[in-house]
Amino acid sequence: LEELEQFARTFKQRRIKLGFTQGDVGLAMGKLYGNDFSQTTISRFEALNLSFKNMCKLKPLLEKWLNDAE
């Protein structure tokens, strides 16, 4: 759980530094990986307001997006 919290904080910082909005991330993930995510989902991930199971599902996709975006 602590690792997920740390990743969520780091993800938000890096996303902002790269100049992407939460909506940009959701749209890009849909185009790149075929998984559409709303701005609300990205927001809830960053705020740790998703279930642990959903956080675990999203983490690898967000890590991949972040690596591809950098």
Rank of each mutant, 00 (worst) to 15 (best):
Thr41Pro: 04
Gly26Cys: 06
Ser51Cys: 05
Thr40Arg: 12
Arg9Glu: 07
Glu2Tyr: 06
Thr21Phe: 01
Gln39Cys: 08
Leu66His: 02
Met29Asp: 03
Ala69Cys: 12
Gln13Arg: 10
Ala28Phe: 11
Met55Asn: 02
Ala69Gln: 15
Gly30Tyr: 10
Leu61Ala: 10
Glu70Ala: 10
Lys12Ile: 14
Ala47Trp: 03
Lys17Phe: 07
Ala69Gly: 06
Leu62Ala: 05
Leu66Gly: 02
Ala8Ser: 06
Glu3Gln: 13
Lys31Arg: 13
Phe20Arg: 08
Ser43Trp: 10
Met29Phe: 05
Leu4Trp: 04
Phe20Ser: 04
Gln39Lys: 11
Leu27Ile: 08
Arg15Gly: 00
Leu4Ala: 04
Gln13Asp: 11
Ala28Glu: 15
Arg14Phe: 05
Met55Pro: 01
Leu50Pro: 01
Gly30Asn: 14
Glu70Ser: 15
Lys64Trp: 03
Lys12Leu: 04
Arg44Pro: 00
Lys59Tyr: 15
Asn35Leu: 11
Met55His: 05
Lys31His: 06
Leu50Ser: 05
Thr21Leu: 03
Ile16Lys: 12
Asn54Gln: 15
Leu66Met: 11
Gly26Phe: 04
Tyr33Asn: 05
Leu61Arg: 11
Phe20Ala: 13
Arg15Glu: 00
Asp36Thr: 15
Gln6Gly: 10
Ala28Cys: 06
Asn49His: 12
Lys53Gln: 14
Ser51His: 10
Gly26Ile: 05
Ala8Ile: 08
Ile16His: 05
Val25Pro: 00
Thr21Cys: 04
Tyr33Cys: 10
Arg15Ile: 01
Leu48Trp: 05
Cys56Arg: 14
Asn49Ala: 12
Arg15Thr: 00
Gln6Cys: 03
Arg14Gln: 08
Thr40Gly: 11
Phe52Ala: 11
Lys17Leu: 13
Asp24Tyr: 07
Glu2His: 02
Gln13Tyr: 05
Gln6Lys: 15
Asn54Leu: 07
Cys56Gln: 15
Leu4Ile: 14
Gly23Ala: 15
Gly26Ala: 09
Leu27Val: 14
Lys31Val: 06
Ala28Tyr: 07
Lys59Ala: 07
Lys64Leu: 10
Ser38His: 04
Lys53Trp: 08
Ser51Glu: 14
Phe37Val: 09
Gln39Gly: 11
Phe52Pro: 06
Arg9Gly: 08
Arg15Tyr: 03
Gln22Val: 09
Thr41Lys: 07
Ile42Ser: 01
Phe45Trp: 04
Gln39Thr: 15
Asn35Pro: 12
Glu46Ser: 00
Leu32Tyr: 13
Pro60Lys: 03
Cys56Phe: 11
Asp36Gly: 09
Lys17Asp: 14
Leu61His: 09
Asn35Arg: 12
Ile42Thr: 02
Leu62Ile: 14
Ser38Ala: 12
Asn49Ser: 13
Asn54Lys: 12
Thr10Arg: 12
Asp24Val: 05
Lys59Leu: 08
Arg9Gln: 05
Asp36Ala: 10
Leu50Ala: 07
Glu2Arg: 09
Lys31Gln: 11
Glu2Pro: 01
Arg44Thr: 12
Ala69Glu: 14
Asp68Leu: 07
Phe37Ile: 15
Met29Gly: 01
Thr41Ile: 06
Trp65Glu: 00
Leu66Cys: 14
Asp68Ala: 06
